[in-house]
């Protein structure tokens, strides 16, 4: 069970995990339209081409807007639900929280189809807002999970102390609770933002004729000549999400340091 064999396996497994990702930068800078070895030479041409595609820019802005709105909304919904779940006992708590967390274990296609049917029945035009509706639904459980642990690790007597010292419920929330769960809020926004930015199925069903970035990508995958451009775009997205992740981890660490608590692993 021990030692060398396992370590070798671990390295091989990492290679497997990274195999597709490594191709992104490799072929993004490769001077050839066919994605195959041997490499043809270095170029930044694909990145230059990226800047000229109008439809791509539209989809990027659309996606960013959707992701940002989703991040804010699902974090707000998450704040309410996580606070209630972490601090209060109320009737039918299990059932209510169960329904709210259900999207975690529901295949996304089910959520997408169900929403599509209802929206069409109600005669609502598909567009960015309908995608946001769906994304908030699937991101809220993640926000709740993050914020719940933030609220649980917040010593309740801190809030009581503030209340005892003369503050109201609301000013206590503003002066004590909010600053102390702020790292959780930021993590929640970043995670929701990332999930929304990457989500395909729901967007595919609900986006109408304003594609999000993944939906636009999907439409481009059919054209072999566009592949290197997609690779370049993928590289940019990879770098962007790494930056986001690093930021999330930084805020989490800072939160831990600020409250002087013991560090207990990453936010995953």
């Amino acid at each position: 069970m021990k030692g060398r064999g396992l370590a070798t396996y671990a390295v091989a497994y990492l290679l497997f995990l990274y195999a597709p990702v490594i191709l992104l930068p490799l072929f993004a800078f490769n001077d050839g339209t066919i994605i195959a070895f041997p490499l043809q030479g270095f170029t930044t041409g694909w990145f230059v081409q990226l800047t000229r595609i109008e439809a791509l820019h539209d989809s990027v802005f659309n996606s960013l807007w959707i992701a940002l709105t989703t991040a804010v909304l699902s974090t707000c919904f998450g704040l309410f639900a996580a606070r209630a779940s972490a601090r209060y006992r109320f009737p039918a708590k299990g059932g209510i929280m169960g329904l709210i967390m259900l999207p975690l274990v529901l295949p996304e296609i089910i959520v997408a189809v169900a929403l599509l049917v209802v929206l069409l029945q109600l005669g609502i035009d598909l567009g960015a807002w309908t995608v946001i509706l769906g994304h908030v639904l699937i991101c809220t459980p993640f926000s709740i999970a993050i914020l719940n642990s933030a609220f649980l690790s917040l010593d309740e007597s801190l809030e009581e102390a503030s209340y005892d010292l003369g503050e109201t419920k609301w000013s206590t929330f503003r002066l004590i609770t909010l600053p102390l769960v702020m790292p959780g809020i930021i993590s929640s926004m970043l995670i929701a933002f990332t999930i929304s930015l990457d989500e395909f199925i729901i967007a595919f069903f609900l986006t109408g004729n304003e594609p999000t970035l993944p939906v636009y990508l999907w439409s481009q995958l059919r054209f072999p000549t566009k592949i290197p451009i997609v690779m370049a775009l993928g590289t940019i997205m990879l770098v962007a999400s790494l930056l986001l992740l690093t930021a999330a981890e930084y805020f989490r660490r800072r939160g831990v340091a600020r409250t002087g608590a013991k560090d207990s692993g990453g936010f995953l």
């Binding site: 209630a84 209060y88 959520v111 639904l137 809220t140």
Partner: peptide, 17 residues
């Protein structure tokens, strides 16, 4: 109070899920 607090999220899930 718990119910009031959870109700926005719950209503959302009720309506859209």
């Amino acid at each position: 109070q718990g119910l009031i607090l959870v109700s926005p999220t719950f209503l959302y899930a009720l309506l859209l899920l």
